[in-house]
Design a protein around this nucleic acid. Structure first.
Lengths: 125, 125
DNA sequence: TCGCTAATGCGAATGCATTTGCATAAATGT
DNA sequence: ACATTTATGCAAATGCATTCGCATTAGCGA
């Protein structure tokens, strides 16, 4: 059966601590603050497990590549800051009703915003 | 100087004929109807040239990967049909004004819709 | 605490899209 | 039509994210 390893617990802690979508490199970097020896392959293995468990969701970002975020959150979209290169979760939905012309059956959608985040724009200190 | 090869002209014709974002494989397939011997490397080389010329634009689709589309078109978004697996261009913008919370400076955005296209849903015959 | 075996760390290996080297083919100026 | 030289087709090579093999480590039940 599955064992509770310190590395997987560290990875979960990383996601609890940073409430935003994270890439493999970020998980590795932040995870190493908990388990210094944390290895990339281990990160990959555990991300896969956590996705299978339904604890994480994999998303494909047009400029950041594969990101992982916690499941169970309300519908939202993503913001990518060109300064700090981080992805943020934006609450709510910014899609208009008449998104597609007649004939197109819209079942799902994804919105990616690009710009500068509060902490990089200096609005938040 | 640059020569006007039949293969590049074929590739341009493909984009003029199909007014939708195309992947490398699609360009190759459609292009071969004009130049039977068309090679994948040639497609890559010419797509790069056409992007440099500003005649094409490269977009990164979350599920279809890299696509190319003609430049100069009005602002629009993309629809991906899960039946025929093609990408379509949707005219207009479906983004609400208040897309991001205060503090986020939105400079650009991309919207991807998923569902079934008219020709696959049977609405259009 | 001991024993079993899943999980880790490491480096090598894979799969994939994309690029490149090179001999040959085909545009273009003359 | 010829000579020049860019572009092609082909296959091998690259770069990248991701996976795997294997010896070792470390959870966890007894």
């Amino acid at each position: 059966m599955r064992r509770n390893t310190t590395q997987r617990m560290a990875i979960e802690k990383v996601f609890k601590q940073h409430e935003r979508p994270l890439g493999v490199d970020e998980v590795l970097e932040y995870g190493r603050s908990f388990v210094e020896s944390l290895n990339q392959a281990t990160v990959y293995r555990n991300l896969k497990l956590l996705v299978e468990d339904g604890w994480l969701k994999r998303i494909s970002h047009p400029s950041l590549g594969t990101l992982y975020e916690r499941t169970g959150r309300a519908h939202h979209h993503h913001f990518h800051c060109r300064e700090c290169n981080r992805a943020f979760e934006l609450p709510g939905c910014a899609l208009k009703e008449d998104a597609a012309p007649d004939g197109f059956i819209v079942e799902d959608h994804e919105i990616f915003l690009f710009g500068v985040c509060p902490s990089c724009s200096g609005v938040a200190e």
